[in-house]
């Protein structure tokens, strides 16, 4: 089922790609075997001569939280960034294979990277609100995308969904930078969902936050997953165990850089992983 949301719809946003651009549907044109919003197929990636991902294939189930875990340098953040073509912004990056969003290859000919990034939002490790008011932070992306609905309604809905409305509603003109770190991160989440993405990529979203703010972000992820598909990279294994429905364990070794070792239901990965390397990593025997 397509995510349904209360209030105005982002279908008000006109396509801004060239008329020849491929449109990415909200659902795959044909039913896939499993309901994966994003499907990665035989994906390899190089930074110049140095390989960072090797033949990764996996699906990200719709309206679920999938965590990517693994030691530093295993390729998990790289994989995350391939999903909304953020790696393209780095010079010398070359990819092979496919990343399919609703069964359309996001690297395909005539697919607009800006459209991909609108559909696949991102939240970073360090909260990065614009040096503008809370309200402007929310409206910025929507205005660029030509949103024609009710601005007040969009601001309130986005802030409510990000569980920060009650804390900021008294003064929406306050600078986003005046908020605490945890609030800033929730503001960034509100900003990301204001343009109605389908997928939210989160790269260590709570690692710079205190425990209370971390719990709030984790709770928020569990709430947001009703409407969005979340893919989160985290070094915090307990966090992965707490928030995710599925977990992928990645590893780089001497032979193979950036491989997906094991993917499965989080409950299985954290109680009885199948691969010894997963077992050794999550039990702290290496990494």
């Amino acid at each position: 089922m397509a995510p349904t949301r209360a209030g105005g719809s982002m279908s008000d946003i006109p396509g801004h790609a060239d008329s020849g651009a491929v449109a990415i549907p909200r659902q795959p044109a044909q039913a896939l075997e499993a309901d994966h919003v994003v499907e990665v197929r035989n994906l390899s990636l190089w930074y110049g001569d140095s390989q960072a991902l090797t033949n990764v294939s996996m699906g990200f189930p719709r309206n679920k939280v999938t965590a990517l875990i693994g030691p530093s340098g295993c390729g998990k953040s790289t994989l995350l960034r391939t999903i909304n073509r953020m790696n393209e912004l780095i010079p010398g990056v070359r990819t092979e294979g496919e990343v399919r969003l609703n069964d359309v290859d996001v690297y395909g000919k005539n697919v607009d990277a800006v459209e991909v990034r609108r559909r696949v939002g991102m939240v970073f490790q360090k909260p990065n609100p614009f040096p503008r008011s809370i309200r402007e932070n929310i409206l910025y992306g929507a205005k660029i995308n030509g949103y024609r609905g009710d601005y007040d309604e969009l601001v309130e809905r986005s802030l409510r969904q990000a569980a920060i409305w009650d804390e900021v509603k008294a003064n929406l003109k306050r600078s986003g930078l005046a908020l605490s770190g945890g609030q800033q991160q929730r503001l960034c989440i509100a900003r990301a969902i204001a343009i109605s993405p389908e997928v939210l990529l989160m790269d260590e979203p709570a690692s710079a936050l205190d425990p209370i703010s971390t719990v709030k972000i984790e709770d928020l992820m569990r709430e947001l997953v009703a409407n969005y598909t979340i893919i989160v990279v985290t070094h915090n294994l307990q966090q992965a165990a707490r928030v995710s429905d599925y977990t992928g364990f990645m590893l780089s070794d001497e032979q193979i850089k950036g491989q997906l070792v094991e993917f499965g239901a989080t409950n299985d990965i954290f109680t009885a992983p199948k691969d010894k390397r997963t077992e050794d990593y999550i039990t702290g025997r290496f990494g």
Partner: peptide
Amino acid sequence: QPVASDLR
């Protein structure tokens, strides 16, 4: 916070 075989 043991997991996997340690937890079992």
